[in-house]
Nucleic acid binder design. Sequence first.
DNA 1: AGCACGCCGACT
DNA 2: GTCGGCGTGCTC
Length: 709
Amino acid sequence: MSRENGRDPGEQGEQLALIREAVRETKAERAKPRTWRGAALAPELPVARVLVDKGLVHLDRFFDYAVPAAMDAEARPGVRVRVRFGAGEKGGRREGGRLVSGFIVERVAESEFRGVLAPIAQVLSPEPVLTAELLALCRAVADRYAGSLADVVQLAVPPRRSRVEAESSPAPLPPNAPPDPGSWERYGAGPGFLTALAQGDAPRAVWTALPGPTWPDELARAAAAALAGGRGALVVVPDGRAAARVDAALGALVGPGRHVVLTAECGPEERYRRWLAVSRGSVRAVVGTRAAMFAPVAGLGLVALWDDGDGSHSDPHAPQPHAREVLLQRAVGERAGFLLGGLSCTVEAAQLVETGWARPLAADRERVRAAAPLVRTIGDGDEARDAAARAARLPSMAWQLVRDGLTRGPVLVQVPRRGYAPRLACERCREPARCRACAGPLEARAAGDLACAWCGREESDWMCAECGGARLRAQVVGARRTAEELGRAFPAVPVRTSGRDHVLASVPATPALVVSTPGAEPVAEGQGYAAALLLDGWALLGRPDLRAGEEALRRWLGAAALVRGQAAGGAVAVIAEPTLRPVQALVRWDPVGHAVRELAERAELGFPPVSRMAAVAGRSDDVAGLLRAAELPAGAEVLGPVPLPVPDPGRPRRPGDPPPGEVWERALVRVRPGQGAALAAALKAARAARLVKREGEAVRVRIDPPDLG
DNA sequence: AGCACGCCGACT
DNA sequence: GTCGGCGTGCTC
């Protein structure tokens, strides 16, 4: 019997009263502190080790509770329970502690605790949701990210829905037949990879996908191969659109009932229903977004991740684990195959190949060249000559590309995000225009004067701090404005937009201008787009981020891969400086080469992922205090601390931002590869110690900080 | 985080 | 003598 509310669920109430009585008596005796009145306790393994669901770092351990006989059968490892936790017990009678929930992780015969165990208050549900395997994964992830086990478990186990739990899950289907290699034939080692999966091996690959619409099918085939071998498969993709495409492909390959989709879109109840079907072993393949990375797939044979450079693979909740790292852990811990695929290639992926942990899975150059569109660069000194091009604020070569493309099919125009408000930069040297008072970005106001977007201070005579230039240019132009202007330049052609609020999944094969922000590009039906124009070069490459180049290339390849191959007349133009490394990699369609060169450079500079880093942020003295308290591994290097930029006051406060009015500092700690675990452990221990001693305010610790300038 | 225990100063 | 300050430590 499980019930969510009620302090003393009827049937258990009487037993609890008995046990409380026993507690009191035992206390009085003092001689044998843990002798109970036999009848009230579970006859075997009367102690339950419980993970108490409170995120306090210093409480990151288990607590033992007595198992009443009435709960013996249901109180199995993995189930959710309610226990009293918190208050001391001295001073005679107590109705001690607050009722908190937790999970039983183990049943044992005896407790190490030298005191009186409190009884479990209630078994919330007999469903063993936190299995030993899932617990081990959560433990490993918590350790890697200097987080608490309870925090990670909260990410891994979805909130309970009692109605859904009462339903039964369908019976598991027998394994499907192994799939044909299909378009995996195009990659040298592709068919072999599928065979290995179907045979029960654990091959590991970094896969550079050929441009075009086939990657969802290829991911599905890999999953189907693992299923055919009688094992499970887990495919994690960045968003619901990608999940829908892989879902359709996998359904077509293995039929209904063998897989589920886990995304936020299906709603909490349906999501829990599907998650339970996986947890109960009735479905063995999962396609989902980030949160699905923890899905308790039985007998995992393959973990696959698509497009690991996409920021949505990083969970925003503490301790902010990244899907790539979690799946990597699963591949090792559960001895599963590993497939990291994308149109582009991250430095982390390149590192997996370089260290020999994974093997490359790529097509030969000739195939790549045939499948990819022809890419040209357009310097933006190339002034528009014709009036129409000028009206669209496009260089004439770009305008011609669009005009030619429109005779053959839809044309994609990729523009940076940010609506109407353009950021301003020096016309001569591209240095972003910043406020003299607070270094916030300058914006053009309605009347044409300048003002700071952060502090509002007006700027009357701006001058570039870098080169002394006095003229500004709009650094980026928003999607809507671009759409309007292009629409005027090509009045006979329909203009469709796809962006943050309205993302189109696909567009027809007929001529149209499709204006999209990065990541929201619709798939063009039929052969794909006739051409694409990539307008956001400066905006993407101008960011002061370690990943700016990689990210620009990733977004360009994502858009350009939707264009027909050059054999079919597909053409792409990117407005960017042709000597820059990401631009050259795009022209040559060589994402791996780009990643390998970036990796070499990071190794030289000691940057992640060649080193491991952690960021420590907080008030100045708290950061210093934590670093002083931490027993950092030998050779650890502390960079900074430096003052953290004050977040844009316009945007809503996010978790992790300093409280308003406070100025925070951030220090980076860098260690050699292989010392990441020691670094995480040291920071976690130091933070716990300070919390216990109540020294100063809490400090934020982030392993693998994503925004390294 | 709560909450109780404990070891020092002003009080009916 | 006792009430109560909050500094210190624990929570099965």
